[in-house]
Write a protein that binds this DNA or RNA. Structure first.
Lengths: 191, 191
DNA sequence: GTCTTAAAGTGACCATGGTCAATTTATATG
DNA sequence: CATATAAATTGACCATGGTCACTTTAAGAC
């Protein structure tokens, strides 16, 4: 028999998330400690884990939410007419995704979902990303020899590659923007 | 004044690595516990951390070594004449990199080095990978409108994308090989 | 051989994420 | 209202990676 009783639960969950957001605003994602979250939320540690399977899932939730906000903006934009347009549109999203090494790691770890039942917030945004990119590319003036879906997957792959390179000292200094532009020009307008 | 004294150190280090390899052979990478490593190596925990900055660095070393072995094989191969050849050559490496979710995560985390001084084994293999790919692509019968280096970066990016998708339930079932082939055909032989 | 000293090794201890049996809270029912 | 019970919460406890002040070892000088 179903018991409603959602209000208390929802309040607790909201307090936990608010506490987490507060800590992140103050000291960044990496510095977040569960002890500190429950302290500020005024709950016991066990309560946290009754609401989130583990620390990563809280991060998934929060980071996924931020990404979703960027996608809302992206979705409202008109389809890019040039590779430069496309790169400019992606820049804010990429900036957030690389704001901390830790954030980028969490995103990579949760960009795929091992099972359909456990698609998290970040994995969902990647699905959404491909939809948005696909829709854009369906009537953008780029290559026509491969379907928009495949083009979109390539854009995702190069976006990640460009972000990964940002954290890497092996590659000589070249701005993120220039690098991504070179990738996407080669991918979307070959020949 | 330099003290040689390398023999004892080298032996201890070898015992630690041997113990780690043993555990990995028995139960896989993810199951490795430092406690178990030092128990089998017959050293104290502190000794482990005198040899490796942290657990990840041990993994970097071991996984990097494995990848290097694959690259030795790759390097000896003649340049691929077709995309199928290329994919076939990459398959063993990709299989290893995706043998465990944990292994793939470590590889992603250490594929870039934040600073030149701390280029680890895995980061080095990525550098080497691009060289090998670059050399291959320099005289392969693929597109000629972009330099081999850029082509090589794209191959890396799509290789990672194809591996990431393997761990993701969002994408309908398609074999790793078919997916990578589609990516690389679109990348290397457009139009 | 003995002494000095830098290098190597030790293990008690800490930090932090995560578990679970027990307890409290609140809702539906008679 | 009293009671039964499902849901929510608690906090002592555990697992595991990592630290550091101290001890031991052995290379080289005499």
């Amino acid at each position: 028999m179903a018991r409603a009783q959602q209000k208390r639960t929802l309040e607790t969950r909201a307090r936990l998330i608010a506490a987490a957001e507060e800590i992140i605003a103050e000291s960044g994602f990496e510095a977040l400690r569960i002890e500190e979250v429950v302290l500020r939320a005024g709950t016991a540690k066990g309560t946290f884990f009754a609401h989130f399977k583990d620390k990563d899932r809280l991060m998934d939730q929060i980071i996924g939410g931020r990404i979703d906000a960027f996608l809302d903006t992206l979705e409202a934009l008109p389809p890019p007419r040039t590779v430069e347009d496309l790169v400019a549109a992606l820049l804010p999203l990429a900036n957030f995704m690389t704001c901390e090494r830790y954030v980028f790691d969490v995103i990579l770890r949760y960009s795929g979902a091992a099972a359909v039942e456990e698609i998290g917030a970040i994995a969902a945004t990647f699905g959404r990303q491909e939809e948005v990119f696909g829709r854009w590319l369906a009537d953008a003036p780029f290559r026509r020899d491969i379907p928009p879906d495949l083009q979109a997957e390539g854009v995702s792959a190069f976006l990640i590659q460009a972000m990964a390179v940002q954290f890497c000292a092996l590659h000589e200094a070249q701005s993120f923007e220039d690098r991504l532009t070179a990738y996407l020009r080669a991918w979307l307008t070959p020949g």
